[in-house]
């Protein structure tokens, strides 16, 4: 199989630039990275069709070897449509993210961060309940709620209860 070196070099440049942009924190750059990546892969498929030739319309007297391989072109066409759709959807997401008041940046997962910073999973179970000897209810407990008759033990809330779910 013969390979067009120009196409390969072009593909490598596209993929390298695309990958570099993809690793950026800015969402717009990530989008450009995706576009470059998609186009780079399309060029690769084109390169795989070998050397060029006549367009794939039947002409009297032309040998089969003189036509260009048209299957990769059909594959590229499909891939272009798909990349286009995904790119526009991604653009919509980035716009939405911007509308929601976020910066044009990849956001961290809050639950991941919470898991990382929390010291111990079984905190609530192991807390020393007797340490909370205050007669007065914890400020967080004062709610307009008829709870006194339902949970008599709620006064024994541990003083260290600020780690877990209260971050919500």
């Amino acid at each position: 199989m013969t390979v067009d070196l120009t196409l390969i070099v072009l593909m490598a440049a596209f993929l390298a630039a695309g990958l570099y942009l993809l690793l950026e924190r800015s969402l717009t750059r990530v989008l450009f990275g995706l576009i470059l990546l998609g186009n780079g892969v399309n060029i690769l498929i084109l390169a795989m069709s070998g050397v060029g030739g006549a367009a794939a319309f039947y002409t009297e007297g032309t040998s089969g070897r003189d036509y260009v391989d048209s299957l990769p072109q059909a594959l590229i066409l499909t891939a272009i449509v798909i990349t286009f759709a995904v790119t526009s959807f991604m653009l919509g997401l980035i716009y939405r993210s911007w509308v929601l008041g976020r910066k044009d940046e990849v956001q961290d997962d809050p639950e991941s961060l919470r898991r990382e910073t929390e010291d111990d999973y079984g905190h609530a179970d192991d807390a020393d309940r007797a340490a909370d000897a205050s007669e007065f209810p914890h400020p967080a407990e004062v709610r307009p709620l008829p709870r006194a008759r339902t949970t008599p033990a709620s006064g024994s809330r541990s003083a260290s209860g600020s780690t877990g779910g209260q971050a919500r």
């Binding site: 991604m90 997401l93 929601l100």
Partner: peptide
């Protein structure tokens, strides 16, 4: 907001 944040990660990883 959480879904858009998660969606962007998901789309990028899937596209790659």
């Amino acid at each position: 907001a959480p879904r858009v944040r998660a969606g962007i990660t998901y789309v990028v990883v899937s596209v790659v």
